[in-house]
Simulated scan of single mutants.
Amino acid sequence: MDALELLLNRHSNPRLVEPAPAGEQLETIFKAGLRAPDHAALTPWEFIVFGGEQRKKLGDILAAATEAKGESPETIEKARLAPLRAPMVITVVAKVKPHDKVPQLEQEISAGCALMAMQMAALALGYNGIWRTGWFAFDRNVHQALGLDAQDQIVGFLYLGTAQVEVRKLPERDPAQFVRYFGS
């Protein structure tokens, strides 16, 4: 698939099964993430991989955070099972570093670009995935359980695997509805 076709047809797929990327293909996905825009070469990212049985540990972390919020047993169990919806989950973290010229937001956007690049690389390699966020990304209990520092921010959970079903083609969008030429 050529790069432009990939960009113009990007889509998420929440119905994922084995296999997940591994070996050289997974390494390629990480390399794509490491090419994200990175002002001052701060490399403000960390990729935490949960595959196989490790997904259950992530589920336990999400369930504990849900329980701490006082949610129902059904909601807690749903959180526990969430990482099992794909054979691999990569938690992408913005590892924010103090810098006079690169504010926190820019570093978080950089980590988001890394996540997007990784998803696009997975698609190019024949896999699929979905970028999920939700309140877990901002929950301090989740951050602590993952060993994150106070300034770190989860920008998303990249669920990866093989598409179980093909998703419908997304509708075309008219760029004119989103573009404004200043001064025109």
Score class of each variant (00 low, 15 high):
41 A>T: 09
16 L>N: 01
3 A>F: 15
77 E>M: 11
118 M>G: 02
126 G>P: 05
151 Q>M: 05
8 L>D: 08
145 A>E: 14
179 V>A: 05
42 L>V: 05
150 A>R: 11
115 L>A: 15
98 P>Y: 14
35 R>K: 14
55 R>V: 00
157 F>L: 14
65 A>H: 07
92 V>R: 06
111 A>F: 05
168 R>S: 13
89 V>P: 02
43 T>V: 11
173 R>W: 05
123 L>P: 05
44 P>R: 09
37 P>G: 14
63 A>F: 11
105 L>W: 15
15 R>E: 13
142 V>N: 12
60 D>R: 12
19 P>Y: 06
125 L>W: 07
155 V>K: 02
162 T>R: 02
109 I>C: 06
13 N>Q: 07
184 S>I: 03
29 I>W: 01
53 E>M: 06
109 I>V: 14
1 M>V: 12
145 A>S: 15
87 P>L: 11
44 P>F: 12
133 T>Q: 06
55 R>D: 05
174 D>A: 12
13 N>S: 08
51 G>T: 10
112 G>T: 08
132 R>A: 10
162 T>N: 03
23 G>Y: 00
171 P>N: 13
177 Q>M: 08
98 P>R: 15
109 I>S: 00
29 I>A: 00
114 A>W: 07
16 L>W: 03
104 Q>Y: 13
2 D>M: 05
40 A>F: 02
130 I>S: 06
78 K>I: 00
32 A>T: 04
83 P>A: 13
115 L>W: 05
75 T>P: 00
39 H>E: 06
129 G>V: 00
77 E>Y: 10
160 L>W: 01
156 G>T: 01
177 Q>C: 09
124 A>V: 03
80 R>D: 11
92 V>S: 09
177 Q>T: 06
134 G>E: 05
102 V>Q: 07
149 D>T: 11
125 L>I: 08
178 F>M: 04
138 F>T: 05
74 E>R: 15
124 A>M: 08
44 P>Y: 13
37 P>E: 14
59 G>P: 09
50 F>S: 01
128 N>C: 12
9 N>Y: 10
2 D>N: 15
112 G>E: 09
164 Q>N: 03
108 E>S: 04
62 L>P: 10
154 I>C: 04
98 P>M: 09
119 Q>Y: 10
163 A>R: 07
70 G>F: 12
33 G>T: 01
155 V>Y: 01
4 L>C: 05
94 A>L: 13
117 A>R: 04
184 S>Y: 14
12 S>E: 15
184 S>L: 09
139 D>E: 10
61 I>A: 09
33 G>R: 03
86 A>F: 02
139 D>W: 07
135 W>Q: 06
75 T>F: 12
94 A>P: 10
93 V>E: 04
46 E>S: 13
129 G>A: 04
109 I>Q: 14
141 N>H: 15
102 V>F: 10
163 A>V: 07
117 A>L: 11
28 T>N: 06
149 D>K: 14
47 F>S: 06
38 D>Q: 01
11 H>N: 11
70 G>S: 11
149 D>R: 14
